[in-house]
Simulated assay, not measured.
Amino acid sequence: MSVLNTSESHVVCSSGQLFLQPVWDRLRTREAFTQSPFFPAIFSITVYLGFCLPFAMLDVLCPWVPALRCYKIQPDFSPTARQLLPCLGQTLYQHLVYVFPATLLHWASGAALPPREAPELLQLVYQVVLCLLLFDAEFFVWHLLHHKVPWLYRNVHKVHHKNSPSFALATQYMSFWELFSLGFFDMMNITLLQCHPLTAMAFHVVNIWLSVEDHSGYEFPWSTHKLVPFGWYGGVAHHDLHHSQFNCNFAPYFTHWDRILGTLKSAHGK
């Protein structure tokens, strides 16, 4: 159990915290920024665009480097500037008009000061995985409803399906209500599990990465779904099939909900 030394300003860590405490201490030295209302929006857009950029560069190189096409789900497709720019503009607009005001309201409500101690590594990993599983279940139900109820699809979810085949920058090309729903699921799970701020940040990074990878259009030997055994994780080809056929693979990441309800379709014909 970690204790605070009353005669010194530093935190004495348990063995499970030693790995993360230096990272958390470094973040705490920048509290003026990390506790400001600007940080969540800047963090979100920076991580998102940082993950999108490598795939966007591959899309530019692909016509000139034929070897890259063997990794593309749709080898003859490359997004054009007329597709990329609206997606980028939509993302920037929504972060400015919706995400930043929401974080400003949260900041103005007087959020609690962050703890001095970092979470234990195993606790962080456990809670990130649990957040992903909860988000996967919540979004599966939300997603299925928005495909089965015509009014919901037409007025909320259709925007996200305007780009098919998909590409990395199309990940967050969605209506405000879809963005709000996904953000609500994220925050509800973090609050429900009482996640440490560092755990919440780790979850957001992992969640954004998995979303971008699923929409990237590229399947590599090291893609996430190939690192998860027994077909438990769908992956990019799995999600690309949803964008092309609309009636299958509704869960964003894992496959068990689609398998249970009979909406799972293999991208590799197995």
Score class of each variant (00 low, 15 high):
234 G>C: 10
96 L>T: 07
120 E>K: 15
67 A>Q: 10
56 A>F: 14
56 A>H: 15
201 M>E: 01
208 I>L: 04
238 H>W: 10
258 D>M: 14
190 I>Q: 06
221 P>V: 08
236 V>T: 13
251 A>S: 15
200 A>R: 06
158 K>F: 03
226 K>R: 14
243 H>Q: 09
141 V>Y: 06
189 N>W: 01
187 M>W: 06
112 A>Q: 10
98 Y>A: 12
187 M>Q: 08
258 D>W: 08
78 S>M: 02
142 W>R: 03
105 L>V: 14
253 Y>D: 05
188 M>I: 01
89 G>N: 11
14 S>Y: 04
156 V>S: 03
206 V>E: 01
90 Q>L: 09
1 M>N: 09
7 S>H: 11
102 A>I: 08
95 H>S: 04
67 A>P: 02
10 H>V: 15
229 P>H: 12
76 D>W: 07
17 Q>M: 08
90 Q>N: 07
237 A>Q: 08
57 M>W: 14
160 H>Y: 10
55 F>M: 11
153 Y>C: 00
8 E>Q: 05
5 N>T: 14
103 T>L: 03
14 S>A: 15
239 H>A: 11
73 I>D: 02
44 S>I: 01
138 E>V: 11
145 L>G: 10
187 M>K: 04
28 R>W: 06
196 H>W: 03
55 F>V: 08
83 Q>P: 07
69 R>D: 12
259 R>Y: 13
79 P>I: 09
106 H>M: 13
179 L>Y: 11
162 K>E: 14
224 T>M: 11
41 A>L: 01
205 V>C: 07
99 V>I: 09
78 S>C: 04
69 R>N: 11
154 R>H: 02
221 P>C: 12
68 L>K: 01
227 L>W: 15
184 F>S: 09
180 F>N: 00
247 N>V: 08
221 P>D: 11
131 C>W: 00
39 F>G: 00
126 Y>T: 12
155 N>F: 02
4 L>S: 07
120 E>L: 12
96 L>G: 05
150 P>Q: 07
162 K>L: 12
62 C>D: 02
263 T>S: 13
269 G>Q: 13
203 F>G: 00
263 T>A: 07
139 F>N: 05
118 A>N: 03
117 E>P: 03
147 H>A: 04
85 L>A: 03
174 M>E: 13
69 R>S: 13
220 F>Q: 09
235 G>E: 03
173 Y>W: 07
38 F>A: 09
228 V>M: 13
52 C>I: 12
190 I>M: 06
199 T>V: 07
211 S>V: 02
13 C>F: 01
123 Q>P: 04
230 F>Q: 13
186 D>F: 08
103 T>H: 11
161 H>D: 07
221 P>R: 08
38 F>G: 03
261 L>K: 14
19 F>W: 12
71 Y>P: 08
129 V>W: 06
200 A>C: 08
69 R>A: 10
